[in-house]
Nucleic acid binder design. Structure first.
Lengths: 167, 167
DNA sequence: TAGACGTAGA
DNA sequence: TCTACGTCTA
C-alpha cells in the first residue's frame, strides 16, 4: 500500500467542503488543499505558467479581511527571522508573489484557508475559492511590499454558515 | 467526524508492524508511533515517572549501530543552532535524556524508528522495541554528552527481513 | 519564549 | 544552502 502525493491542481478539491476544519498543516498537504509545509503561498507551473493555487492566512503577516468575502493577502518575504510583521527588506516579485500576480492576470481561482481559533483550539478552515482582483505595491517603513486583494467567488455558501453546520 | 490524538503509550502500537515505512514525521505522530514533530526522543509521564517511549534516528546526532540489534543513541541538547554533530555545551540529564535514563532503570521498552534511504527516497522505518541496557556519560570536545545503549528485544523478526517482505 | 534528529522549494 | 504564515514541550 503506497502513499501517493496528490497532484497540485487549481480550484476545488473533490471531497473538501467549505468550512472543513483541519488541525495541522500536514493534513492540508495530504489532501492536496495546500501542499507547502510552511509557506503561505502554494503555486505550481500550470501549462507553462506559474500560478498561485492556495494561500493560508495564519496571521503572521499583516493581512486584512474587510468583509467576509474579501481578503488582502500580504506578499511573502522581507520579514527576516524575527516574527515581526514589519519588513526588513524589499519584497520581490518572484516565487509566490509572482505566482499571485500571474493568477491575477489569468483570473484563475485561489483556494483560501484561514487559521481560526486561539491557543490549543487553532484550526485551519477551508474558505473556498477566491480570485485575485488587484495587487497593491507600496512602501512600508521604506520597504517595498505587495498586497494581493482577493475576492470570494460568488455562489459559494458563506463560511460562517458552513462553520455552524459542521457542529 | 473528529480527529482524536492517540494516547502516548509504551510498547508496540496495534496495527504497526516491523518494517512499516512512513514518509513524514507527521505520520508517525498520527498513528502514535512517535508524537514529537521534531524532537528525536519522545517521552511521557507514566505512573508518575517520566519514561522514554520512542526515539527516531535521523542521523543528525552521532548515533551508532554496531549490529542490527544494537543502537547507540546520543542524548539531546548541546549542539546549538548549526547542524554540527559536535557539542557546543554540556548535555543535561533532563527532559528526554532523563526519560531515557529512567527507562533504563525501569527496563521499559522503547520504540525505535530509523530514517533510511537518501535524498527524495528518505523514509522512516519502524524497527521494533528496544531496551536501554546502559548509559555512557563522556566528554566530547570537553563537553559532557550522553550515549544510551539500546538492545533490540529478542523474538522480533529482523528488520531487513521485514523490509524485503514489504516490497 | 526559545529550542527541537522537520520538509519542500528556490 | 537557505528560507518558509510549523508545532510541541519545557
Amino acid at each position: 500500500l503506497k502513499w501517493m502525493e496528490p497532484e497540485k491542481s487549481l480550484g476545488r478539491i473533490c471531497g473538501v467542503r467549505i468550512g472543513d476544519k483541519f488541525k495541522h498543516r500536514a493534513q492540508l498537504k495530504m489532501i492536496g488543499l495546500h501542499c507547502q509545509p510552511l509557506s503561505g503561498i502554494d503555486y505550481a507551473n500550470i501549462n507553462g505558467k506559474s500560478l498561485a493555487i492556495s494561500v493560508v492566512d495564519s496571521h503572521r503577516y499583516s493581512n486584512e479581511s474587510a468583509s467576509s468575502d474579501k481578503m488582502v493577502y500580504c506578499g511573502h518575504g522581507g520579514l527576516g527571522f524575527s516574527g515581526r510583521k514589519l519588513p526588513r527588506e524589499d519584497q520581490k516579485l518572484k516565487c509566490g508573489n509572482m505566482a499571485m500576480k500571474n493568477s491575477m492576470d489569468e483570473g484563475t481561482p485561489v483556494r483560501v484557508i484561514r487559521k481560526v481559533g486561539a491557543q490549543k483550539n487553532e484550526m485551519f478552515v477551508y474558505d473556498g475559492l477566491y480570485v485575485v482582483s488587484h495587487c497593491i505595491q507600496k512602501r512600508n517603513e521604506g520597504k517595498i511590499m505587495f498586497w494581493f486583494c482577493l475576492d470570494r467567488e460568488p455562489g459559494q455558501p458563506p463560511l460562517h454558515q458552513m462553520l455552524n453546520e459542521n457542529e
